[in-house]
Design a protein around this nucleic acid. Structure first.
Lengths: 327, 327
DNA sequence: CTGTTAGCGCATTCAT
DNA sequence: ATGAATGCGCTAACAG
């Protein structure tokens, strides 16, 4: 059956609905005896007050709610996004509902659910895709939708140019004298890595190599680097499509007594926290901008649904530090 | 005035409320002309459908909602908490509403608001306090409340023993031969740091020092270390009440050519990501446990409000790495 | 102390 | 294509 209402409770406890309401809300104007019996009935029927009805009846202010679908990969990228989203939305009296999605399938499930429930006034898609059909449904219901770290043109989004990022990686190495390059990327099932690879391959010298790893943690980076050192001894430049991978590479190089940047130069991607301390040269992705932009756009769209915000491609920046030579 | 309803829109557009509803929900059974006029009225009155009413009328399932009040300090502690909370709650069909609070005052404001709105079925307090009065109100309304990284006994919580943590810091240094110790802590306005200081002072050798910094980033750690090196040259052990501070200390020591751990040993607190790579000896705080415990308890309390979960003090663990000598 | 009643703002029949 | 009426589950007067 559907969930019990105060009517069910009232009937079962042999009291009026007002009394049930009083018990729920902790009014003291209820005798201990009836309170007990009402509580008993509530327990037996596993009653939980309906939030929507409660807010409606109580005349609670209609706070806007935006849902963020977020794949909590380990990278601190999502921490920053999460933090900026939360700060911006909280300050605008908007609830941020954080939903963890492990993959596209889960994201789709939630997109459909939100559509059916009509329970939010905006959705922020993080690193996830959406098909046109669903997009149209959102359009029809007038629920705004924006995305960050997103790769299609069907909804407004903010992202970096990962192909350009790949080029940057290789060029940075070339400019600093590394002509035997290797690129380490995460799984090619992610467009992000495919794009970085494409850019890298476009710009890199002949004979360069690309290696794919399942995970993008530093253990993987170290392992791949070890293989690389054996199979490609003339190697003098390692580009990594993620900072963690680069950290692993650095570890393995040190372990093998290979000097950085003299014998091998290393460059990462993201500029996560502490990379400055480690002295890693890297391609900076302006993460704060992602959250800020998404929050601003969704708030704007909620206020004015007819807006058609344009997508934004934010520039990548090369941060020169100690793991590369000077250009 | 209060926000307009479909009645206001209907009146203004000279149509019935059903038509307004149709327009809102994108029904195609509306002539283009009336649709336009309704949309115009909605625009002019800045209309936004009331969520609660919508869900109620549509018979949407009553998803439980738990609010997490979180001070997004820079530390990755909150990322881990955020992530575990989100994963656990999402998997239990419960909405996680993330609210950014900068300080206790903001936390109190939200606690009061949530109470007034009765808009959630549970609250998780992160690193924040609550007074008994408010706690009682929550009790009366039967809205469960749990906390993590919390220091009072008035609500169920999970935490570490920071006093013991402080002792651990000093003992670890003493055991490894550092007898001229200094402790660097963040602001004493936080109980956490006061406790760590108390523990440290209890266990440390005569003549040890404690320095307080405003911020807890690595820049502050470096700065304080610089001062320390001048004013306390015989120093041979630095304990830090946070990893970031320790990282800063390490940087400054290297800059000054002081060898670690030979001349000065360093120990941190938290075991944040990458500390293994940096080789920092530190006191590990089991962050995943915090989120897991809080999520589990709140879900349990929502199901069975009569539960009285006991608070949990999780043990700290010393992680021995390269910035200290062997014991 | 307790029950009756009237909305809260909207979706949804059912008529027209 | 559109309007009138009904009810979602609950709170809040209002009586008693």
């Amino acid at each position: 059956m559907s969930s019990p209402t105060i009517y069910d409770i009232a009937a079962r406890a042999g009291v009026g609905i007002a009394t049930v309401s009083r018990v729920i809300n902790g009014s003291r104007r209820v005798s201990d005896k009836t309170r007990k019996s009402v509580q008993k009935a509530m327990g037996e029927l596993d009653f939980r007050p309906n939030n929507a009805a409660r807010r409606l009846a109580a005349g609670a202010p209609n706070r806007a709610r935006v849902v963020a679908l977020m794949p909590f990969f380990t990278t601190s990228f999502y921490f920053t996004v999460c933090k900026t989203l939360s700060q911006k939305l909280s300050s605008e009296n908007t609830d941020l509902v954080l939903v963890d999605v492990k993959n596209q399938e889960e994201a789709d499930r939630h997109l459909d659910r939100l559509l059916a429930e009509r329970s939010c006034e905006g959705v922020i898609l993080c690193s996830m895709d959406i098909n046109e059909e669903r997009r149209d449904q959102y359009d029809i219901l007038n629920i705004p939708l924006v995305a960050l770290d997103h790769q299609t043109e069907i909804i407004p989004h903010i992202r970096v140019d990962n192909v350009e990022g790949g080029r940057l990686l290789s060029r940075a190495l070339s400019d600093r004298g590394a002509d035997k390059q290797a690129l380490i990327i995460g799984t090619r099932s992610s467009v992000v890595f495919r794009d970085r690879e494409a850019g890298f391959c476009e710009a890199c010298p002949e004979g360069s190599r690309v290696i794919e790893t399942e995970l993008t943690d530093h253990a993987s980076g170290a392992e791949v680097t070890k293989q690389l050192l054996e199979s490609f001894p003339e190697l003098n430049g390692i580009a990594c499509a993620g900072d963690q991978l680069a950290v692993g590479a650095l570890q393995e190089l040190r372990r093998q007594g290979v000097s950085v940047p003299d014998q091998v130069q290393v460059i990462g991607f993201d500029d996560q926290p502490l990379m400055d301390v480690l002295g890693l040269t890297t391609v900076r992705q302006p993460m704060e901008k992602f959250g800020d932009w998404a929050a601003d756009r969704i708030l704007e769209l909620i206020k004015n649904p007819t807006e058609r915000p344009e997508s934004l491609v934010v520039p990548l920046e090369l941060i020169d530090r100690a793991t590369t030579k000077t250009a």
